[in-house]
Structure formats: structure tokens, C-alpha cells
């Protein structure tokens, strides 16, 4: 497969899903061309609802559809799909355990030129803290197809995090996809790199850098941040004794937060978190922003070495 934005894959996956499951309906808040739900709208106009620029109402309407047996996918940009609608998601979707799929595009700093107002760096944290919520971050186009199918078959609220920019295929085709089961992309005994979303490609590159310095790093793709694959992460953290996390999200409350919480209680090894360091983003080209905010293979390799140093010093 060619590089593809996960939002693009989402739009295409929705069409396949729509053909297979007649209970699937799609809602959007005036961003259907960007979130790619317009593809579904063209194919199934009666099962598509454009809610206008009214995200809170969209979430509540989705809840009502789900309460009547439909499987609504509600889409908009991540920043509006989580923060703006937090109380609607909390009370009408998570508390009620209704079968709503919140599929958010344009997450993270790679939204790029639109700037900080549109770059959600806290959406995983907001969704992860809600009881009953499942949080899925596909790493590439193919994985997005798999994730859309999996979450449609799963009964309960899900947050699906998608990106704007094209990403290469990083997950081997033969790796099975199962909600809640992390995937081992690379074996290694010295260091564990835990990554999600677009940071998987960065992690593979960082592992190459570390390899040259004699560090064998394992890489795990945590496509389901909640529920976290506790068993696999604790086992691999124990095997390696040093962990680094990588995400296109704040280091507070996201993947790094989840892994640090898990390991502090179950396998206390050093955890170094690479992500956005408690700051808002800004306008710029996606690659330039990744560079400026430190989400690079070089930085990830450095974070890995810091974790190794902590392991050796026993601190």
C-alpha cells in the first residue's frame, strides 16, 4: 500500500462498512470533505447526517441513534470531537455506554498550518480518563481499515484517533489486529520503545540509530491505548528494564502517561516519555513542526539512551 492518511483510509473503510452493516450511520459537523465522511455521504445519503457546525448536538444525536440500535460514527476534527464536546461525550455517551464511535481526524501537531487552535494534543488524555471509553490510534492506512471494522463489531463507545497527513505503511500485513492487543514490531532485549500512531515510523528509524550503537530495542505498537495491553507491556518492560514512549500528543495523560502509570504499579523500570512537552503548538508545515517540537527519530534515540542510563544507574 502507498502512504495514506489515516483519515483517507477511514473514509474508504466506512464505505465497505456501510455495505456490510446497514445499521451503520455517519454524522459530521460540516467537515465531511476533510474527515472523508463525504465518501460515505455520496454512497449512502439517507444514512448520513450533516449536523452543521454543532459538535455538541452531533454527539447527543449520535447517542440517541445508538440508543435506538444504530451504530453511529460521528466525525469532526479531534480538537472539536473531544474538548468542545467533553460533557456530551461524558454524560450522553460514556456514562450511558452507548454504541457511538467518535472518529476524529486532524489530531496532533501534524494538522500543521492551521495552528494551535486546531491541533489537539490532549484528546487521548480526555478520552482515556472516561470510564467505558475505548481509545484506538491506528498507525497507518491498513491498520485504520482493520480498526474501523473492529470497532464497528465492538459494542460500546470508542474514540478513534486519525491524522491529516499521509503516513507510510509501517505495520506488516501479516500481523493480526485485535482491539486491546498491542503488536510487537521488533524484538530486542535492551530497551522497549512503546509508540502509537505516526510515531511508529519514527520508532523504527530510532531503533536503527540505536542498533548502530549496539542497543537492541524492541518496538511495540499500542494501537489500543485503552484498554491497554497490560500483560504484554509489563512482560516486555521486565525483559528490557528500560522503556521509552513516543506519541504525537502531550506527554501528560496520553500513551506515555498510561504506560508510566501501568509500570509504576506493576514493573517499576525507568520510563522516558517523548511527546509534546506541556505546550500548545503553532502554525507550520507538519514536518517542520515535528522537528521543532522534538518528535524525531534522533530525539527518540536520545530518550532511549536516557532510559538506558537510568536503568544502569539504578535510579
Amino acid at each position: 500500500m502507498e502512504p495514506m492518511a489515516t483519515r483517507e483510509a477511514y473514509g474508504k473503510a466506512l464505505i465497505e462498512l456501510g455495505l456490510k452493516q446497514e445499521k451503520v450511520v455517519v454524522l459530521d459537523a460540516d467537515l465531511s470533505k476533510s474527515t472523508k465522511t463525504s465518501l460515505f455521504a455520496e454512497k449512502f445519503p439517507l444514512r448520513f447526517f450533516n449536523m452543521g457546525i454543532a459538535e455538541a448536538d452531533m454527539m447527543g444525536t449520535a447517542a440517541g441513534l445508538a440508543a435506538s440500535g444504530y451504530i453511529p460514527f460521528a466525525s469532526t476534527f479531534g480538537v472539536f470531537a473531544t474538548g468542545r464536546t467533553y460533557d456530551q461525550i461524558r454524560n450522553s455517551i460514556a456514562y450511558t455506554r452507548l454504541n457511538v464511535k467518535i472518529a476524529a481526524s486532524h489530531t496532533g501537531i501534524t494538522v500543521g498550518e492551521d495552528g494551535a487552535s486546531h491541533q489537539t494534543l490532549e484528546d487521548i488524555a480526555l478520552m482515556r480518563v472516561l470510564p467505558n471509553m475505548t481509545v484506538v490510534v491506528p498507525a497507518d492506512g491498513r491498520q485504520t481499515f482493520q480498526a474501523v471494522e473492529a470497532i464497528a463489531s465492538f459494542e460500546g463507545p470508542v474514540y478513534l484517533r486519525l491524522g491529516r497527513s499521509a503516513v507510510p505503511q509501517v505495520i506488516p500485513e501479516e500481523l493480526p489486529f485485535e482491539l486491546g492487543k498491542a503488536q510487537i514490531l521488533r524484538e530486542g532485549n535492551d530497551l522497549l520503545i512503546v509508540a502509537a500512531g505516526i510515531m511508529l515510523g519514527t520508532a523504527l528509524e530510532a531503533a536503527g540509530i540505536l542498533e548502530k550503537e549496539g542497543v537492541r530495542a524492541a518496538i511495540v505498537n499500542v494501537h489500543t491505548i485503552k484498554p491497554l495491553d497490560n500483560e504484554l507491556l509489563v512482560r516486555m518492560a521486565g525483559n528490557t528494564g528500560a522503556v521509552v514512549t513516543a506519541e504525537e500528543h502531550s506527554i501528560i495523560g496520553g500513551l506515555g502517561g498510561a504506560v508510566a502509570e501501568l509500570l509504576a504499579e506493576n514493573c517499576p523500570v525507568p520510563v522516558v516519555r517523548l511527546g509534546i512537552r506541556d505546550t500548545f503548538g503553532e502554525s507550520g508545515a507538519p514536518q517542520a513542526l515535528l522537528q521543532k517540537y522534538g518528535l524525531t527519530a534522533e530525539n527518540l534515540a536520545l530518550a532511549g539512551k536516557k532510559a538506558l542510563k537510568l536503568k544502569k544507574s539504578g535510579k
Binding site: 447527543g60 440517541g64 461524558r90 450522553s92
Partner: peptide, 30 residues
């Protein structure tokens, strides 16, 4: 709604029920 038979929607945080009712009305139409 998950605890009380006959309750169709959990409410309490004001302002949310009309949206849910709209979703139910759309579902009835579908």
C-alpha cells in the same frame, strides 16, 4: 438508563436531552 427500567436516556447535565431525542426520532424514521 443503564440502571432504571423505563428510563430511555441518562440525563442530568442540562441541555443534552433534545439532541438525544432528535437521534431517536431520526432512528424511528430510518
Amino acid at each position: 438508563m443503564r440502571k432504571i427500567p423505563g428510563v430511555e436516556m441518562s440525563t442530568g447535565s442540562l441541555g443534552q436531552g433534545l439532541s438525544a431525542a432528535n437521534g431517536m426520532a431520526l432512528a424511528a424514521r430510518l
